[in-house]
Write a protein that binds this DNA or RNA. Structure first.
Lengths: 211, 211
DNA sequence: TTATAATGACTGACCGGTCAGTCATAAAAG
DNA sequence: CTTTTATGACTGACCGGTCAGTCATTATAA
């Protein structure tokens, strides 16, 4: 006498995948629970067996999307080479991943909006804060490393560079969303070259610049 | 035989000011037209004498907010000095202005979200595209200028630096919204110092770096 | 049998937008 | 100066529609 068993977690993940598409297409408010249920191939009532509210669905959906992205980016940080190499790898992997999944970008924009005002502000806001803090911390750590081994100059402030690079990625993708003729990878490569030249120590500089 | 005549345009502007607060607090979807009417001190019916839809109110509200910001930033571009000076002035004025009006930032986030998905995507999306194109164009123009007079290196790609600086501002303010302990002005000063060093020509560089 | 999953009709709150009517105003008439 | 009247700004009750969330019922596997 045991009941029908389903893998709840797997089912939840499946649902978030369908929800991601709907949210990206219609936004958080614009997507109705009926839309999501239909996209996921389940009934509305069943949905509420997996999530206790629409907000919950959105939250889980973004978490799942983000988890993939973060994992990819973190791996890049552990590449071999100088601090510059690692920083480059991190930025290029991130920009490439965002570029390749640009159709999901509205999900991020929706989260920003949800976290900025309205009833969900408290909840989503603190998630965003810690997320950015983590990203900045890791990036700043790379810069610190570069400074420690004399690769980067003493007057470089890791927090400043980290905040701008992390923020720049967001801002760049935003522009790309509105104008997909931008070659974000190329733009990033060129800009990063300039930044690295600006923060590298004299000795390293000698080797890089010429002309 | 005529009743009291009101200055429609002035009244519209007044209404957008009240609406800006409401939209910033509750978001576009979250703010009801009744909320806005109450905040503006007029009846809902009267509101529809000034604007033909809620979307129209939001659009006008953002336009008014943005117009002030853009004007301020553009002035900074026309300051005296080298290309570096102008670029610095532009970034610092912009970041300062955004910082001082941070309570209005959710309005921007709402617009991004509205422009990214849903029914208003077409309308708001094209506005955003041209807005960013203009900002990048002006910034890139400054870099071109610097290259032309030999202040900046030949291998600097104006479009790349422009896209990243403009995007970086957005991304930085986003982080600031979630964590207002960040000293955005200082972070920007330091990072820009690094960037300018990276894009300056060798000769200029000699003067700047030492140690 | 029985415990659980799944369903979808239903509900009640909310909201954008409308419209018939009110009222303060000021021009015109006496 | 007083009365009449044309005007349009303003009001708020109302309507049609939408949607998040519920629950009584049915299906299914053990």
């Amino acid at each position: 006498m045991a009941p029908k068993i389903v893998d709840k977690d797997a089912r939840r993940l499946e649902i978030t995948r369908a929800a991601a598409e709907v949210f990206s297409l219609k936004g958080f408010q614009g997507a109705s629970v009926d839309d999501i249920a239909e996209a996921a191939g389940v009934s509305k009532g069943s949905l509420y067996g997996y999530f206790k509210s629409k907000e919950e669905i959105f939250y889980a959906t973004f978490q799942a999307y983000q988890a993939e992205l973060v994992q990819e980016c973190m791996q890049a940080m552990e590449s071999e080479g100088t601090a510059s190499d690692k920083l480059t790898a991190f930025l290029m992997v991130t920009v490439t991943s965002l570029h390749d999944h640009i159709e999901m970008f509205p999900l991020t924009l929706e989260l920003w909006a949800a976290a900025s005002s309205g009833p969900a502000r408290e909840r989503f806001g603190s998630v965003m804060e810690s997320l950015y803090r983590e990203f900045r911390g890791i990036t700043a750590g790379l810069i610190e490393l570069g400074k420690a081994i004399g690769e980067f100059r003493e007057d470089v402030e890791p927090e400043a560079v980290a905040a701008w690079l992390v923020g720049g990625l967001d801002g760049l993708m935003l522009q790309y969303w509105f104008d997909q003729t931008l070659d974000v990878r190329h733009l990033t490569e060129n800009f990063l070259e300039m930044v690295l030249r600006g923060i590298a120590t004299r000795t390293d500089l000698e080797g890089i610049i010429d002309v």
